[in-house]
Simulated scan of single mutants.
Amino acid sequence: MAVNTINSNQLIPGAYVTLIQKDSYPDGNANEQSSVTSAVYSSVTLMQQGVIGIIGDISSSWTSLSALMSSTLQIPQCSFASKTIALSDKTQYKYFFRSIPTQVIFADVMLSFAALQGWSKIGIIYSDSTLGQQFFQRAIIQAGNQGLEIAESHSFDPAIDLDDMTYALQNVTQGRTRVIIVAATDTTQTSLMVHAASMGYMTNEYTWLLLGVSDNLLQQSVQQYNQNHTNLPPLDYNTTFNGLFMFDDWLSLKGYGPFDSFLQQWSSLNPQTLAYSCMMVMATGFKQALSTEKDPVFGLKQLASGELGETMLPPAFNVGYVGPNGPMIYDSNGDLSIG
């Protein structure tokens, strides 16, 4: 759909875009090593065909492999599915950007929510990881913009025993803080919340803002805790975990004419076709880069031969495009700055 739109509207004047597809997904019986080999082989095959841009991959781990190669060859690469913070490292993934926000951006939403509730003092507990550290740094900036005070904060290392979690929870809750943001994901976050409950911090006195936690995962963690601590009073999920706000990403603009029209066309496609925004942003970035060339024909030849070099870094794709994933506005790391 994106390629048809680009070519029919002559989005890149004088150019005809061809989409080369290569499946990096391994066979059902493949082991981990052969899966990696398959992903690398797919990426190398694409690059050998002289592509000027890459879209994908579906997995963060596979994307990190292809993005290392594409950045070495100065080929821009856009992912529509890879959220891992590691891909923000421009020393390794210089030409990589994405059409999906990282979880760091949730700091903006959580703090905006807190401000709307009139909560002026916030506590933050964050995992000692790239995600946790970047989230905390962004939260410091955004708290100032929202007129909020981060009264207490503490990191914890999930690899260390429960004492580290205990210390973090005690430090953040011992002062004036009763509204607490947790910057951790998956089992790291649920382990912290179950431990908080066991310490008596899951009462009406506290409000917790969590990052995309699953109800099922939290319930499983509670069940596991009760099985492992039969000598202690059991935790009841329904009555204990009632002060939680869980934030996740979701977008729908139904009722807005252009979006409804787009959905009509989208519904006729394979529902797994998720790369539309990547394709459109990349094409618009190419168009913008060519518009600065004095000789359009020479510029097209440079584009086709992959000789535009550092003009194709992530800032080149800050073109003001708004697609089904919302506005594509990037920071210097190629990450969405709003979402």
Rank of each mutant, 00 (worst) to 15 (best):
residue 17 V to C: 06
residue 202 M to H: 04
residue 188 T to G: 13
residue 333 N to P: 03
residue 277 S to F: 07
residue 245 F to S: 14
residue 300 L to F: 01
residue 285 G to P: 04
residue 312 M to G: 06
residue 112 S to A: 13
residue 31 N to V: 03
residue 177 T to G: 09
residue 339 G to W: 12
residue 264 Q to R: 15
residue 240 T to P: 07
residue 147 G to A: 06
residue 193 M to A: 13
residue 87 L to D: 09
residue 264 Q to H: 12
residue 337 S to A: 13
residue 273 T to C: 14
residue 161 D to I: 05
residue 38 S to Q: 15
residue 153 S to K: 05
residue 215 D to T: 11
residue 126 Y to P: 05
residue 193 M to V: 10
residue 200 G to R: 09
residue 333 N to R: 11
residue 207 T to K: 15
residue 74 Q to I: 05
residue 276 Y to V: 10
residue 210 L to S: 06
residue 82 S to L: 06
residue 176 R to K: 12
residue 248 D to I: 11
residue 117 Q to F: 09
residue 84 T to E: 15
residue 193 M to K: 11
residue 28 G to C: 10
residue 220 Q to R: 09
residue 334 G to R: 03
residue 201 Y to W: 02
residue 49 Q to L: 09
residue 115 A to R: 02
residue 226 N to P: 09
residue 313 L to P: 05
residue 97 F to P: 00
residue 118 G to I: 01
residue 10 Q to E: 15
residue 184 A to N: 07
residue 338 I to S: 06
residue 282 M to R: 01
residue 156 F to P: 07
residue 268 S to T: 15
residue 322 V to G: 04
residue 126 Y to N: 06
residue 6 I to N: 03
residue 318 N to G: 12
residue 331 D to R: 02
residue 138 R to H: 05
residue 195 H to R: 14
residue 54 I to K: 02
residue 185 T to R: 15
residue 159 A to G: 14
residue 201 Y to R: 01
residue 261 S to I: 11
residue 191 S to V: 11
residue 219 Q to Y: 05
residue 44 V to H: 04
residue 302 Q to K: 12
residue 78 C to N: 03
residue 233 P to V: 03
residue 85 I to N: 10
residue 59 S to I: 04
residue 232 L to A: 13
residue 128 D to Q: 11
residue 73 L to A: 08
residue 167 Y to G: 05
residue 334 G to N: 04
residue 141 I to P: 05
residue 263 L to S: 09
residue 219 Q to H: 07
residue 53 G to Y: 01
residue 22 K to I: 05
residue 253 L to C: 10
residue 267 S to L: 14
residue 215 D to G: 07
residue 11 L to T: 12
residue 172 V to T: 03
residue 235 L to E: 09
residue 65 L to V: 11
residue 99 S to T: 15
residue 337 S to Q: 13
residue 75 I to F: 01
residue 169 L to R: 02
residue 271 P to D: 04
residue 235 L to S: 08
residue 335 D to M: 03
residue 130 T to K: 12
residue 41 Y to G: 14
residue 118 G to Y: 01
residue 306 G to Q: 04
residue 26 P to K: 11
residue 197 A to L: 10
residue 280 M to L: 06
residue 320 G to W: 11
residue 203 T to E: 05
residue 142 Q to T: 01
residue 131 L to C: 03
residue 283 A to R: 02
residue 151 A to C: 06
residue 260 D to P: 08
residue 248 D to E: 14
residue 106 F to P: 05
residue 194 V to C: 06
residue 316 A to C: 03
residue 235 L to C: 08
residue 55 I to M: 01
residue 16 Y to H: 13
residue 266 W to E: 13
residue 221 S to E: 15
residue 116 L to N: 11
residue 172 V to F: 00
residue 245 F to K: 14
residue 87 L to R: 11
residue 246 M to E: 12
residue 132 G to K: 00
residue 282 M to T: 08
residue 136 F to D: 01
residue 4 N to L: 15
residue 334 G to L: 07
residue 203 T to G: 01
residue 89 D to F: 08
residue 333 N to C: 10
residue 15 A to M: 04
residue 110 M to P: 02
residue 301 K to Y: 14
residue 104 V to L: 06
residue 16 Y to F: 10
residue 97 F to V: 05
residue 70 S to M: 07
residue 167 Y to D: 12
residue 257 G to T: 13
residue 109 V to P: 05
residue 149 E to D: 11
residue 73 L to Q: 07
residue 171 N to S: 13
